[in-house]
Design a protein around this nucleic acid. Sequence first.
DNA 1: GTATCTGCAAAACATTTGCAATTCT
DNA 2: AGAATTGCAAATGTTTTGCAGATAC
Lengths: 142, 142
Amino acid sequence: MDVTVRDIDGIKRYLMNEGINPSYQRIKIFEYLANHRIHPTVDTIYNDLCREIPTLSKTTIYNTLNLFEQKEIITSLSIEKNELRYECDTRPHAHFKCTVCGTVYDIRHEFPLVTKSVIDGHKVTEQQLYLKGICKNCSRDS
Amino acid sequence: MDVTVRDIDGIKRYLMNEGINPSYQRIKIFEYLANHRIHPTVDTIYNDLCREIPTLSKTTIYNTLNLFEQKEIITSLSIEKNELRYECDTRPHAHFKCTVCGTVYDIRHEFPLVTKSVIDGHKVTEQQLYLKGICKNCSRDS
DNA sequence: GTATCTGCAAAACATTTGCAATTCT
DNA sequence: AGAATTGCAAATGTTTTGCAGATAC
């Protein structure tokens, strides 16, 4: 799902369409990803959603994200060691992580994507381009 | 260090040159990386080196790899979630991981590298291109 | 002899698993 | 009721930390 989702019913229909039983927790987790395009970690999702759903457990978040990823409606990013991040934008694009403030930005233009489906004889089915450095905001501040 | 290292003295000089005290363990760990271009995990390095150095501890491997990475003589790869790999080739190149056999290949040609130092206003200092799919060998087997 | 380095044990995290309770239809 | 889902507690796996002993200069 590539645009901000405004209504719960839209999410419900989308999940069902992808073969996912739309439970309350699953809808809320997907809604969170759709409306918070910050590439959150499990911990961030948990801390934020806990306020709204006090009974929510991390296990459910792990279960749900693993299910979503397996159904290919979200993507996981391992741009930083020991820190998995998630996003619900599955269109191919690159990511830039600022080493100062930690923000992860989507990079949609001006970056090279592999277009060949075979490289050095290997069949390519997935790709991730991770960039790091100092972001626009942090450069200006210093 | 980009070519296979044959002599311990060469490694010793290289480490000293990079401001690293060349202890026995550090030399052996660097030698291992230089002569095993398989992008090993800490566990692999530990299991292999243990045969030669029975008293070696994983803590020392973690300490050493973190030191090497900080001194920028090795690179860590987070191509797979929850599995850090290391290599001593710091020249820019891409990596391909086979989802069948798990092998990680270096990709030196036919892949796009970011050449601009500024993208979307962000200063880029590091990049990693991770590809996944089915490798040459596993395609042939099936 | 003083700095540094090593390695054990414990701690700190992140993620998964087993399973009983809950929810949904 | 029956099947799926949730969430607690425990297990697993990885990396870091504290610290005492060993090593090197």
